[in-house]
Simulated scan of single mutants.
Amino acid sequence: MAGPKPDPPRNVTVRRVQDEYLISWIPPTDNSVPPAYYGIEYRTDGTWKKLNDEHIIDATSYTMKKLKSGKKYYFRVFANTLTSFAYSEETMFVVPVQNKEKAITAAIVGGILFFIVAIILSVCTVKICNKRKRRKQEKAYNMVDCRVTESRNGGHGSSPVPLKKRKEFPGEAITTEQI
């Protein structure tokens, strides 16, 4: 047995409040048939699903914990009496994409790149320091060594030039002129 219908709820809105989603509405304007309680349904693609198991009494909002990021949701609010009901117009809400996964991935990649660059810079620093140290040691060795140059030695090098040996053939005598 159906009784008189209440007016539907108005201005259904969905918004994110911290880590939750707040669904709110304005009660019907006609109070001749006041709603006994409210109910909420939602859908993402096909069939409507009941959102709340308990009746919402004397309230004009409901808080949801989780919605899938990047999905499009449709909501409608029911005004129920003991014998009848009326529902609001559908309200669409697109859940913003959560960037937590992207932020975590970016942090890991950034950390790895930071360590790679730090290792490369430390290896380069060690090589540069070793090269400077080697140059300093060579400079100190050259100061102590005092090498004799050709110009100081009258044009003679520090090592004598070897003389060519002449081959002797069997039966040939070496004369004093040849020596």
Rank of each mutant, 00 (worst) to 15 (best):
P4I: 07
P4N: 11
K5M: 11
P6C: 01
P6F: 05
D7N: 10
P8L: 09
P8Q: 10
R10M: 13
N11V: 03
N11D: 08
V12L: 09
V12F: 05
V14R: 04
R15I: 01
L22R: 08
I23C: 07
I23W: 10
W25S: 00
W25T: 07
P27E: 11
D30P: 00
S32D: 11
V33P: 01
P34W: 03
Y37S: 10
Y38S: 03
Y38H: 09
E41L: 04
G46K: 14
G46Q: 13
K49A: 11
K50F: 03
L51N: 09
D53T: 07
E54F: 09
H55R: 15
I56E: 13
I57K: 05
Y62W: 09
K66A: 15
K72P: 00
Y74P: 13
F75M: 04
R76Y: 01
F78W: 10
S88H: 02
E89K: 04
E90H: 08
M92I: 14
M92Y: 06
V95Q: 03
V97H: 01
E101V: 14
K102I: 00
K102N: 04
A103R: 04
I104A: 02
T105W: 05
A107M: 03
G111V: 07
I112T: 13
L113H: 12
F114V: 04
F114H: 02
I116N: 04
V117D: 04
I120T: 02
L121F: 02
V123H: 10
T125V: 06
T125N: 07
V126Y: 03
V126L: 15
C129G: 05
N130A: 10
K131N: 12
R134C: 00
R134D: 09
R135N: 10
K136F: 01
Q137P: 00
E138M: 12
Y141A: 13
N142W: 12
E150I: 10
H156Y: 07
S158I: 11
S159N: 00
K164C: 08
K167W: 13
E168Y: 02
P170I: 09
G171V: 05
E177H: 12
